[in-house]
Amino acid sequence: MKIIVPIKQVPETSNVKMDPETGTMIREGVEPIVNPLDLYAIEAAIRLKEHAGGEIIALTMGPPSARKALTEAIAMGCDDGILLSNKKFAGADTWSTSYVLSQAIKKIGRYDLILCGERATDGDTGQVGPGIAAWLDIPFMTYISKIMEVAENEIRCERMVETGYEILAAELPCLLTVVKEVNFPRLPTLRGKLRSRAVELQTWGPVDIDAQPDFLGLKGSPTRVVKITKPQVARRGKIAAPKDEGELVTAVDGLIEFLKQKEIV
């Protein structure tokens, strides 16, 4: 089984510091990591390979430094990595990004499965996975919480929706985006890390993937970010800081009173 895993390098957003003046992210000291939600896709791919054999190729678009993300994917268990890096790709929105990734996948040629994370934790759109499938015109399923069975030409999965779980079967090749519930991603092994250093990563540009120039980068992106602002955290109501048991009771009384006033109890 040949599996392609498109991944993204993102800033470690859980510790992001913002410049209050400019409203931009302070990048100093922010370690770029593999999008945490992509780790589930990588893990799913490795498990399928362990079960059925095959090959896993990690794919990423980004600056030259994004090769580190591919190295990490290989350390976890992917076989190969391809970096899509070129100035012409810069500033792409999800439409253009999914185009570039799909062109690279076409160049890779035959494959059985494309596995994506649910979304990247920086952009948070979840649009690139379905976008790739649309470009390739292959069936796709999102929010996959369980991969149940893989047969010759079919994959069966559970898809997490608002009210429960759909049980779906898709023809191969297809694209899946997986949610956290699907597995527990493994850590890279020492052997994996050593191997990742030995793998020679290819870098592809627009010509390599036969890309239409006016579909690339900021120029090829239908959307434009016109403004960035800092969200206002408003509210801040009454905060009780009880110092003894009596004050604690008063604080709880206050909460119950608040609930009554808002007609919650």
Binding site: S98, A134, W135
Partner: peptide, 23 residues
Amino acid sequence: ATTTGRTVAPAVAVVCHTGLTAD
């Protein structure tokens, strides 16, 4: 931005060659 909307909208945006803003 439900599991339905977030699935169908990106595919439609690609096919119709237009921009989509999530969430």
